[in-house]
Simulated assay, not measured.
Amino acid sequence: MAKLTKVQAKAHTEAEKILTKDRLSDDEREFVIEHWQESARHINSIAGAFFTPWGLACDFAVEVGPGRIIDLCAGMGTLSLACLWHNIHGVTDLVCIEANPDYAAVGMKLVPEARWIVGDVFALPPGLGRFDLAISNPPFGAIKRAASAPRFTGKQFEMHVIDIASDLADRGVFILPQNSAPFRYSNCPNGGWPTTVRDGIGNGYLHCPSDPHDKLLAQTGIILEPNCGIDTGHYRDLWHGTSPVTEIVLTDFIEARARRAGPPTVAEAEIIARPTEPVAAQPDLFGAAA
């Protein structure tokens, strides 16, 4: 458990008082998300549990579409709440999976619209059905886990979660440590633009080898791709008890399952190995708006 400053402790105490209410207003929900300290009761480094900053969660929601959503390793539901509030197309169903009962209890107050399941993502209950989208800010790195994903055999907890999600949903949006992503954009000078030039055109993303991603692709058929231009570096100092460099990654699980169904053709293999095509530069609107 981390030692809080006087200001943090005072705000956390106020958040605890708010959580005693039966129903919370929208302002109260935001206050709890920003000031309830997950480290006040738990040693977060052991479980890798660091909740998403609210501003980052709202930017993350830009990549979320309509339909059924499952939030794996949901914590107190920050991503889920942002997706509910910022998805103008409408979330038709929302399921949150969280192993820590204390976090889930807070989440049930913050996101009562969701169906909360207190349990391990490695032992999901049957009958959840098919989801349009899986989302997660999972624990990062070689965190102790109860089991393994169906296919991925590496140490990175986050990649095990993505592998599990590929059997549940058609698409995925995840927050990962930058060294697990196959690109660099966040926290780079000018959004990475000066460092990425191919055929005279910069696309804003620095493509770089990633051993975890290479292993994920080889074992699961999953390809992680860049987002629409969200620099998570704007929120690096707003995490509680840590300041990670992260990226928001997207993936198409329908395509991944098709790859797993059989070996790719020569043409498909060339597409998989090909770097992302350059796209026109765009201003960092989301960072500026935050």
Results as ranks from 00 to 15, higher is better:
P138S: 12
P138C: 11
P139F: 01
P139D: 05
P139V: 03
F140Y: 05
F140D: 01
F140N: 00
A142I: 02
I143A: 02
I143G: 01
K144W: 07
K144C: 04
K144P: 00
R145K: 13
A146F: 13
A146W: 14
A147R: 15
A147H: 12
S148H: 13
S148I: 05
P150H: 05
P150N: 07
R151A: 06
R151D: 04
T153V: 13
G154T: 04
G154M: 09
G154D: 14
K155P: 03
K155G: 09
Q156E: 15
Q156R: 14
Q156L: 11
E158A: 14
M159N: 11
M159C: 15
M159L: 15
H160Y: 13
V161C: 08
V161T: 06
D163V: 10
I164Y: 09
I164A: 09
A165T: 04
A165I: 08
S166H: 03
S166L: 06
S166W: 04
D167R: 10
D167H: 11
D167E: 10
A169H: 05
A169G: 04
D170R: 15
R171N: 09
G172T: 03
V173H: 04
V173E: 06
F174P: 00
I175V: 14
L176E: 05
P177L: 12
P177K: 10
P177R: 12
P177S: 15
P177Y: 04
Q178T: 14
N179Y: 15
A181C: 13
P182D: 06
P182M: 09
F183I: 08
F183P: 00
F183H: 11
R184I: 12
S186P: 05
N187K: 10
C188Q: 15
P189K: 14
N190K: 10
N190Y: 14
N190A: 10
N190S: 12
G191S: 08
G191T: 11
G191H: 08
G192V: 03
W193Y: 14
W193V: 12
P194K: 10
T195D: 12
T195R: 09
T196K: 05
T196L: 02
R198H: 13
R198P: 00
D199C: 08
G200C: 03
I201R: 15
I201N: 07
G202E: 02
G202Y: 00
N203S: 06
G204Q: 02
G204L: 02
Y205R: 02
L206M: 08
H207T: 11
H207Y: 13
H207R: 11
C208L: 12
C208G: 02
P209H: 15
S210A: 11
P212S: 10
P212K: 07
P212A: 11
P212F: 08
P212L: 09
H213T: 04
D214M: 13
D214C: 05
K215Q: 15
L216I: 04
L216K: 05
L217I: 05
A218R: 14
Q219W: 04
Q219G: 03
T220F: 00
G221H: 01
G221W: 01
I222F: 01
I223S: 08
I223A: 08
L224W: 01
L224P: 00
L224V: 02
E225L: 10
E225S: 12
N227Q: 07
C228A: 10
C228G: 06
G229P: 01
I230L: 04
I230A: 03
I230Q: 03
D231V: 09
D231R: 10
T232K: 06
T232W: 07
T232L: 08
G233K: 09
G233H: 07
Y235S: 11
